[in-house]
Simulated scan of single mutants.
Amino acid sequence: MALDVPLGRLPSASSSGRAFARFPWHIAFLVLAISATGIWNLASASRSAHAPVWISQMWWMAGGATLALAIALLDYRTFLRVGYVFYAGVVLLLLAVLVKGRLVMGARRWLTVGPINFQPSELAKIAVLLALARYFHYDLDKRRDGYGLFTLAIPMAITLVPAVLILKEPDLGTALIVVAVGATMILFAKVKWRTLALVGCVGLAGSVFAWPHLKPYQRKRVETFLNPEGDSLGAGYHATQSMIAVGSGQALGKGWGQGTQTLLSFLPEQHTDFIFSVWAEEHGFAGCALLLLLYYALVTAALTVAGNARERFGHFVAVGVTAMLFWHAFINMGMVTGVLPVVGVTLPLMSYGGSSVIAVYFGVGLLANVGMRRFVN
């Protein structure tokens, strides 16, 4: 894996035509397959709702696919140059959310521009991976012996600044994803073992310190995870109904549109955070295995792009996108099956949400860009 190509040899805009000949169609197929599955599942999940959200999701996905194609065709050096600028812009948007964001159920997570509401926290994932990829592109040569605690200060700050702002909205789930993406990219840099152990201890101590500062409902979610039957009609209701839905699907499921947990509205947030529960109830173990296979293939293909990247910046961008896809799917499926606490994380391309769809397609466009330009000078 050659990761030491200098900046001057990065692909130029004139090479876009030759690069497109190497477009990763297998990744495009997997993304479109999951997207189509998501729309089909949303049509069932929202059949008892007032609005057919699957139609809105189709428009968001069409816009996301257009964005991904445009990003894939851009000059590769653009993302290296604007990484910090994009990051700074997203941090400013996160600050604007805390000041002027739309208040919904006690949380400020959305900015409103005309008829569109969007979550800057979704863009924070892209901002962090681009900023870290730029940082490691230039800095890694200086750390032949690996990163120590003090030399990790800047990468950790890049990760934690947006994560803390998102946590203040509050949005624990998205903040965890941002930290997971940043931490994964840092681990792919050369970090000393004793530094990893020390960071782990600091993280554990930080969790203990942060516990009393969490919102009451956030603490209740963790307590309910440890004892879901303790408050099955209160804080544990979401997790309990989700596990009932997943288990009732059995081997082959009840069939599309036949999920009683969904139809009778027992399953809360069924078109967003708990969309996997709808799929599991209606398509059973077989359907879940198929969906897991699609995600596995996508993550594996993304890792292959990272491993074959022709230079360091592309390698870390692909690692960041892979981490974003993996941690979203892992945490969402874990929380709806009772393996992890309910923290409000969406399932990529399955859950309803325009901002989430745009962020995922943005990442896919970056991934395609890296893969297309592996052999282009």
Rank of each mutant, 00 (worst) to 15 (best):
W193R: 14
G230W: 03
E282R: 01
G249C: 06
A189K: 02
T272C: 06
T262V: 12
G284V: 13
C201A: 15
P216E: 06
H283G: 10
S232N: 08
P268C: 10
L294T: 04
T260V: 13
A197M: 11
A286D: 13
L292P: 00
L252Y: 15
T260Y: 13
V191G: 03
S248G: 01
V191S: 04
V202N: 06
A245W: 07
R221A: 00
N227T: 03
A205T: 09
V246I: 09
Y217Q: 04
F274W: 13
T195S: 04
G257A: 15
Q270E: 06
G255C: 04
C201K: 11
S242P: 03
H283Q: 12
L204W: 10
R194L: 10
A197V: 15
G253S: 00
A239Y: 08
G287P: 04
V199P: 05
Q250Y: 13
A235E: 06
A235R: 00
A197K: 14
W193Q: 09
A289C: 09
S248H: 00
Q270A: 07
W279M: 06
V191D: 04
L290F: 15
L290K: 10
L214P: 00
R221L: 01
E269V: 14
S242Q: 05
L196Q: 12
N227V: 03
G203C: 14
E229R: 02
Q241D: 14
R219L: 05
G236T: 08
A245R: 02
V222A: 07
H213K: 14
P228E: 11
P212N: 11
L226W: 00
V208C: 13
G257Q: 15
F285G: 12
A245K: 04
A205G: 02
G249P: 07
L263E: 11
Q261T: 01
L214F: 13
L293Y: 10
Y237A: 09
H213C: 10
I275K: 03
G200Y: 03
V191M: 07
A286C: 10
F285N: 14
P212M: 06
G284W: 05
Q261K: 01
L204G: 15
V208W: 09
A280W: 00
H238F: 06
G249A: 13
Y237S: 10
V208P: 08
G234A: 03
M243E: 12
P228H: 08
L226G: 00
G284T: 09
S242E: 11
